[in-house]
Write a protein that binds this DNA or RNA. Structure first.
Length: 377
DNA sequence: TTGGAGTCAATAGG
DNA sequence: CCTATTGACTCCAA
């Protein structure tokens, strides 16, 4: 397997100039100061670097980082805490489902710039490995000398192993919310509800909550999270679809269909398609996946609005880096989309349908907003 | 207020 | 230990 030719994510992140065209006059708010100073690099703060950074291929960066970490037996926790300033769970999520650069907010790009920076110098790996050793050493030392010592001075590790001395100790008011864990059926019910209405009204939410015997806030949170995560699923599928083969090989580069417009980026065939399989249930069985059909409304299949897509990703001025063949894959339109007469289909279509519902919801919302005023058409 | 983006942190599996 | 999942929270913009 040829696999990636070692990315070589050149990019000296601090190349281009782009003098702060939009420089808020000295507004600069406080800034608790960087928890993570960022290696050495000129005096720039990461925020500044993020602002100047050219478009990065988040997927490639992520892939590389995962590779380096596993190759060197470095964990996400250590990497996240010391390099990114994030917790293990966040790192896992980020590495597994990186959002395309253009869909990230300034804040969201920060971790990727940090990763890129980290990857740029092989010595960084060594440093991390050193830290790992040091941690281990400290750990060993601790458990060795604490043979009979349970000093109150142990921030971490509550595990006083050995003797669990019975001081029931306070828990104060037994705080610590137990963390709600939704039962599979509850999730099913919520997903079903989502299919019909991605944006339930307060009233609907109340109903769901009482029917499922859940707190209203839990239902609300669930919808927030689910929508958000469904969105990400779409992102990665877009990337995968775009990355693949066929038509235009090479042209690596972070290209993802820009688009809030739901364009069809399907390349049927090629990928894995259970031949003949007519019944639903496709292979992947993750959670978010598997959005069952049943949207409340019929998807009127109008030809996808052309949509200008003028979104020109101002390519970084000059900068030796590869500039892209952007336009090339910017729109991997498949005229077939509108025609697709295929009834049964992958969950992708369903998700897109849900996404469409999203858009519809917004339009309706906007339309209903009072403002009897005119729309000037 | 509502919804989105980022995260945290408790947990469940390995 | 480590990683993946996921309910809840914080910030922010509209």
């Amino acid at each position: 397997a040829p696999e990636s030719p070692l990315s070589s994510a050149e990019e000296s992140v601090k190349s281009l100039g782009e003098p702060p065209a939009s420089q808020p006059p000295a507004s600069e708010s406080s800034e608790p100061c960087e928890p993570l100073p960022v290696p050495g690099h000129s005096g720039l703060s990461i925020q500044e670097m993020v602002a100047m950074s050219p478009e990065l291929d988040t997927y490639a960066i992520t892939k590389k980082v995962k590779e380096v970490l596993t190759d060197n037996n470095l964990g996400q926790r250590l990497f996240g805490e010391t390099i990114l300033g994030l917790t293990q769970g966040s790192v896992s999520d980020l590495l597994a489902r990186p959002k395309p650069w253009h869909k990230l907010s300034l804040k969201g790009r920060e971790p990727f710039v940090r990763m890129q920076l980290w990857l740029s110098d092989p010595r960084n790996v060594e440093k991390l490995m050193d830290m790992k050793r040091m941690e281990k050493k400290a750990y060993m030392k601790r458990r060795h000398s604490s043979v009979s010592e349970s000093q109150p001075a142990e921030p971490g590790l509550p595990g006083g192993e050995g003797s669990q001395s019975g001081s029931p100790q306070h828990q104060q008011h037994q705080l610590k919310k137990p963390r709600v864990v939704l039962a599979p059926e509850e999730k099913e019910a919520l997903k079903r509800a989502y299919q019909q209405k991605p944006y339930p009204s307060p009233k609907t939410i109340e109903e769901l909550a009482s029917q499922l015997n859940l707190k209203t806030s839990t239902v609300i949170n669930w919808f927030h999270n689910y929508r958000s995560r469904i969105r990400r699923e779409l992102f990665i599928e877009e990337i995968q679809a775009a990355a693949g083969e066929g038509s235009s090989p090479s042209a690596r580069g972070s290209k993802a269909g820009e688009g809030d417009s739901c364009d069809g980026t399907e390349s049927d065939g090629t990928v894995e398609g259970r031949p003949g399989g007519v019944s639903g249930s496709e292979g992947n069985g993750a959670d978010l996946k598997e959005v069952k059909e049943g949207m409340g409304l019929e998807m009127s299949s109008g030809p996808p609005a052309p949509q200008d897509t003028a979104t020109s990703a101002l390519s970084p001025p000059g900068t030796s880096s590869q500039k892209g063949s952007a336009i090339g894959s910017l729109f991997s339109f498949s005229e077939t989309a509108p025609i697709a007469r295929n009834p049964r289909d992958s969950s992708l279509r369903k998700k897109k349908a849900a996404n469409l519902n999203n858009i519809i919801h917004r339009l309706e919302k906007a339309a209903s907003r009072e403002e009897p005023s005119e729309w000037e058409f």
